[in-house]
């Protein structure tokens, strides 16, 4: 049987995913005594007002350091967490306005690949059962075809011979193969959006290139849209069409691969790019790094959140928060002095 995953319904919305003014604040747990005395609850502002459109068929990379909120945005984007404020619109459907049952049915169309396949695959289920589980939930009426479909998807992700892998357990295969199983499991429900949260961070260098290549190939073949979350800008370059850089829950810059890597306008993006080591001993970094470390997201600095570490900070940066503005076509920057870097 030919597994036909490429047939998608006619695209009605150009933007597969629209994120509007998204906020997620986590309350900080306090003791009862603290609450009595202070009476005020503090919040970790993990995501604090993010807008983002992801076009059908593109690979959008979300980059940032730990604590920047990139994983939280991913979880909100596919309805795994409820936003404090704001909307997530998937193909014209607002995920906040639908009930649990409808959301469950929507999940077929958006799947996740996590960082650690050893943690995300059930150690007591065979690979075949893990992968076909999505079919049982979303296509129960076609259960006679499940085995064929599972075998076909194993072949697609390069786990051949598929029959050999079907009855294996996660601990019996290598790390690279496990991540391929996780990819197969995400693809089997014929999704449109794939959330890939650091999908290759655990893999060895020699295996990474193969996984990246597989993801690009599958994206083209199945017309997938990727939300690719990563801390590694060198890897993002090989898969993403557009990149957004997050700092303390805010998008500081967003643009095409070329804009971001060749003409980064925000000082934070510039620092982040300069910090990535280049695998060439002759190209040693000369640019100084910003002072300090990422501040506490409970009390983010006033004004521009990057100003305490920014080498170009002026007085205005300590008071007014810069807006994310389109400086050039498709290139958005939240910096008071973005124009001065344009040259």
């Amino acid at each position: 049987m030919e597994l036909d995953l490429s047939t998608q319904k006619l695209a009605t919305h150009e933007n597969l995913l629209e994120i509007r003014n998204l906020r997620k604040w986590f309350p900080v747990q306090k003791t009862f005594l603290d609450q009595l005395l202070a009476g005020k609850v503090n919040y970790v502002r993990a995501v604090d007002g993010v807008n983002l459109d992801i076009r059908r068929g593109e690979a959008f990379g979300l980059a940032g350091e730990s604590g920047s909120g990139k994983t939280t945005i991913g979880r909100l984007a596919i309805g795994l967490a409820k936003p404090t404020e704001g909307d997530v619109v998937f193909d014209g459907i607002n995920l906040n306005k639908i009930n649990e049952e409808e959301l469950r049915r929507m999940r077929r169309r958006m799947q996740v690949i996590f960082q650690d396949p050893m943690a995300s695959l059930n150690p007591r289920m065979t690979l075949g059962d893990s992968v076909s589980h999505g079919l049982k939930i979303h296509y129960p009426q076609r259960d006679d075809e499940h085995r064929e479909m599972t075998l076909a998807i194993f072949e697609k992700v390069g786990l051949t011979p598929a029959r050999y892998f079907l009855n294996k357990y996660p601990h019996q295969i290598s790390g690279g193969q496990r991540q391929r199983v996780a990819i197969a499991r995400a693809l089997i429900t014929r999704p449109e959006l794939i959330l890939a949260d650091e999908p290759i961070a655990m893999a060895d260098v020699s295996v990474r290139a193969l996984l990246l290549d597989l993801m690009v190939q599958l994206k083209n073949e199945f017309n997938l849209t990727y939300l690719f979350i990563t801390h590694d800008l060198a890897t993002a370059k090989y898969i993403c069409d557009r990149i957004g850089v997050l700092y303390l829950g805010k998008m500081v810059e967003m643009g095409s691969l070329k804009d971001m890597y060749q003409h980064p306008l925000h000082p934070y993006t510039q620092a982040l790019l300069a910090a990535v080591p280049v695998p060439n001993p002759l190209l040693k970094r000369t640019q100084p790094m910003p002072a300090g470390e990422i501040p506490n997201p409970i009390n983010p600095p006033p004004g521009c959140r990057f100003h305490p570490r920014c080498p170009f900070a002026k007085e205005i940066c300590t008071k007014d928060e810069p807006e994310l503005l389109e400086i050039r076509t498709g290139h958005w920057v939240a910096c008071h002095f973005a124009n001065t870097f344009l040259c």
Partner: peptide
């Protein structure tokens, strides 16, 4: 050859080493 680099070049591909350790 399979280490990703940030130095952007168009149509650049990483070397894909067959097999696993």
């Amino acid at each position: 050859a399979c280490v990703p680099s940030i130095e952007i070049k168009d149509n650049e591909n990483l070397y894909k080493m067959p097999g696993e350790p």
